[in-house]
Amino acid sequence: MNRTLTYIIDNQYTLYRIGDFLREQGYSRHVIIHLKQTENGILLNGNWVYINTVLNIGDCLTVNIIEETSSEHIVPVKMDLNIMYEDEDIIVINKSAHIAIHPSQNNFDNTLANGLAFYYQVQSLPFVFRCLNRLDRDTTGLVLLAKNMYSSCILSEMIRKREIHREYLAVAEGRLNSFGTINAPINRKDNSIIERCVDTINGQRAITHYKLLQYRNDYSLASITLETGRTHQIRVHMKHIGHPLPGDFIYNPNYRDINRQALHSHRLIFNHPVTKKAMEFVAPLPDDMQILI
Rank of each mutant, 00 (worst) to 15 (best):
M1Y: 00
L5S: 06
Y7P: 10
I8M: 04
D10I: 10
D10T: 14
T14P: 00
L15G: 01
G19P: 00
F21T: 11
S28D: 12
R29L: 11
H30M: 12
I32C: 10
I33N: 14
H34L: 10
L35H: 13
K36I: 11
G41A: 08
L44C: 14
N45I: 15
N47W: 07
Y50P: 00
Y50A: 15
T53C: 06
V54L: 15
V54P: 01
L55I: 09
L61I: 11
V63L: 15
T69E: 09
S70E: 09
H73N: 08
V75I: 15
I83A: 12
M84N: 05
Y85A: 11
E88C: 08
D89Y: 09
D89G: 09
I90P: 01
I91G: 07
V92Y: 12
H98F: 14
A100Q: 08
I101A: 11
N106Q: 05
F108W: 08
F108S: 12
N110A: 04
T111V: 04
L112A: 05
L112C: 00
N114Q: 08
S124L: 05
V128G: 11
C131H: 06
R134D: 12
R137C: 00
D138L: 03
T139P: 10
T139N: 12
G141H: 09
L142V: 02
L145F: 08
A146W: 05
N148Y: 08
M149N: 08
M149L: 04
S152F: 11
C153R: 14
C153S: 15
L155N: 14
E157K: 14
R162D: 05
E163G: 01
L169Q: 07
L169I: 13
R175P: 06
R175G: 06
L176W: 02
L176A: 07
N177E: 10
G180R: 13
G180D: 15
I182S: 06
I182A: 13
N183K: 03
A184G: 07
I186V: 02
N191P: 00
S192M: 08
I193Q: 01
I193T: 08
R196E: 05
C197Q: 08
V198N: 09
D199G: 13
A206W: 02
Y210D: 05
L213I: 03
Y215Q: 14
A222R: 05
I224T: 03
L226S: 03
T228C: 06
Q233I: 15
Q233R: 14
R235H: 11
H240W: 15
I241E: 06
G242T: 03
H243C: 05
P246W: 12
N252E: 07
P253W: 03
N259R: 11
R260P: 02
Q261D: 02
A262I: 07
L263F: 14
H264S: 06
H266R: 02
R267M: 03
L268M: 04
L268W: 00
H272L: 12
V274E: 15
V274R: 10
V282D: 03
Q290H: 06
